[in-house]
Design a binder for these strands. Structure first.
Lengths: 232, 232
DNA sequence: GCCTGTTGTCGCCGTTTTGTGAAAAGGGAG
DNA sequence: CTCCCTTTTCACAAAACGGCGACAACAGGC
């Protein structure tokens, strides 16, 4: 079995070297990034199979990197952080991380946790990788860059609208229930949230659809939820 | 969304209570076992979705429990142990554990790691084993996407019509009584509902059948109910 | 052919669900 | 503090849907 490609995100050169040396010694292939922007760029362009992520990056918070990556990819993310507070762990794990190690960490433990992740990847292989850019008709969503276009025109979306668009586009063709959508957006699902969802859907449609009357991209399923259609 | 069933394996009653109390407070369902034999028995007989496992059991080593369980099941195992040595972690992880927490552990962290596991379970459930598309002649029902097609043409169905179609298609070839159908659709079965059922059946047929006169898919059984036929 | 009981179809109207504009509330940057 | 952008709430109009009664169509028994 071919060893997976691992993206190592760490700004501190000595630690990064420690990790990469270890990986090399165990026949892993790897990429490196020293900051958040680089991490997202590498993740989107080279489709690594696992990410090792330090939270203390110079340009952005590591948790933000997790959130951004999670808009388009489910690749396993193992956090390696100096922060050992519960709150930090919980924030990272809930943002989408799969595991959390605190520095100083044991190299052997890291390798063991990598093996766990690898084992899990092998078990569920069929789920293919997702492209970092989604295209559908004139609509284009660049998950890595975090922006969307309609033709050449960039859409100016609020964070919520963008998340909503990501959610719909990652599930083209599938009907997403109100509950599911609100869960994904806000982690809860009260009646009020569904009302808000309608408002966001309205503003998103206003920016996205040419003809308000007959939506081209987003279809309503009464009593159920919404669905993005494949266009052309 | 239904919370998963969790098997708690821990011989120390106070800690076990701490865990189960926490789980109960967060609406998880759980089972308990106080030793290795019990753990294996519960795991095999009740098919829990996640196992929380203490390594220090009275009757056998926790790692042995992992190995035994792994001979037939892939259920996620989160180890909670007083042993904080690297060697112990590595042994457990390589034996098949998915995560490893050391005592004393933070309840919040445990919950966060449970959520990670749950997320992963949810992610691989839909894409995996279950066949989510029903095909019958030109008719195609995509249960996962929540929509139906006749040839290339998508059918625009109301919630009731869709539910009805699902019910019939999931029981192709079987005659479903009026009572059964109304029970499934509305949870009750008054005479009026049977009348309504006829109306829904009419609209559904209008959308589904090419020739109104001789139904191709849905057959009426006078005095009994309806049946979907296998076509071609 | 006629009668009876069952089934199919139509249209109406009340209810539920959704879309949308505007206003209030919240939050971060300067 | 103020401004600006985003999110949430509210109110109301528009649309879709479900339930119902009326009646036509149909099948089977005689």
């Amino acid at each position: 079995m071919n060893k997976p490609m691992i993206l190592v995100v760490e700004d501190d050169a000595p630690i990064r070297n420690l990790i990469t040396t270890t990986l090399r010694a165990h026949d892993y292939r790897y990429l490196t990034a020293a900051n958040g922007e680089g991490a997202i760029l590498e993740a989107s362009s080279h489709n690594p199979e696992i990410m090792l992520l330090d939270l203390g990056l110079p340009d952005m918070d590591g948790v933000e990197v997790i959130r951004r990556v999670r808009t388009w990819s489910d690749l396993p993310i193992i956090v390696i952080s100096a922060r050992s507070e519960d709150a930090d762990k919980i924030e990272a794990l809930d943002a989408g991380a799969d595991d959390y190690l605190t520095k100083p960490f044991s190299v052997e433990e890291l390798l063991a946790r990598l093996r766990v992740t690898q084992r899990r990847l092998a078990a569920q292989r069929p789920g293919g990788t997702v492209e970092a850019v989604f295209t559908n008709g004139r609509l284009r969503v660049d998950y890595a860059a975090g922006c969307a276009f309609l033709g050449e025109q960039e859409l100016h979306l609020t964070p919520s609208e963008y998340k909503l668009l990501c959610l719909l586009s990652r599930n083209v063709g599938k009907v997403l229930t109100h509950t599911y959508i609100t869960q994904q957006l806000w982690g809860r699902s009260w009646d009020n949230d569904v009302a808000s969802l309608r408002v966001f859907m309205a503003t998103l449609r206003k920016k996205l659809e040419q003809e308000p009357g007959s939506p081209q991209y987003i279809q309503t399923h009464i009593g159920i939820g919404y669905r993005m259609l494949r266009v052309e």
